[in-house]
Amino acid sequence: MSAPPTTTAELAQNTQDAIGPIIAFDNVSIAFEDNTVLDGISFQLPRGETKAIFGVAGSGKSTILKLTLGLIKPDGGRIRVLGEDVTQMPEDDLFELRRKIGMVFQESALFDSLTVRDNVAFRLMEEAKITEEEIERRVVEALSFVELEHTLNMLPSELSGGMRRRVAIARAIIAQPEILLYDSPTGGLDPVTSTTIVELIIKQRDVYKTSSLLVTHRLQDAFIMATHSFDRKTNHMRPLPRGERGEVPMTFLILRDGKVIFDGDAQELAQSRDEYIREYIS
């Protein structure tokens, strides 16, 4: 893997105004017709942390991410993102806020009539001030981060599922967002491809230290993330020594029947007495 750049300016930006959680859900509820999906959930994501959200299919994981982006509005409760209340915000201001957030959709959601280059560049092309050369340079940089420089002129339909997921990651990180949201990034992929995606997410986490919410239906992916760190020398992930925590704090949140039944770190999770949870971690 190519070594990603880390400038002091980026680090300074990340540590700047590190007060207060970057995302805070406060008693949030939402129902679709008669189907109550989230029933008063609360949690916080401190700046610089990665939180894995686990739940079975249909438990409302994607809904949480869409609420965070303000793509849908809750029926009750408050959601603060980067210090702003997205439940009250008019759509025009939301567009501004969303530019600071990168999202990787469940099925990648690449623009199917645009090339990989234009998909990845989309965010930057909206910005009037950025020159063509600058865009080109950053597209190549983002694509080399996910090791897909050679696909520049291909269409999404010509890529495999795993490659599409990687392009989606490149598209999400190109503008160096303050928050990253991953929606089931390994969903529907074979085990080998899943591992490369998880490794990529670990690389992103350890290199840029972006605060992230990672939705997953496979708890083992989240465990790999908690127990591995990215090694810049070998450009691969490696297991952390036993009992040692990674540089980036990693926590878990488990959803069941519209409620949060667990919110804590890997150690607490391993010690949980809850039968439902034990069933998944054994």
Partner: peptide, 18 residues
């Protein structure tokens, strides 16, 4: 319609474009 059902419209909104 295809863009809606494949979440491309949501993706566009998520990228900060109306």
């Amino acid at each position: 319609g295809s863009m809606i059902v494949t979440e491309q419209i949501d993706a566009m909104r998520a990228l900060g474009t109306d």
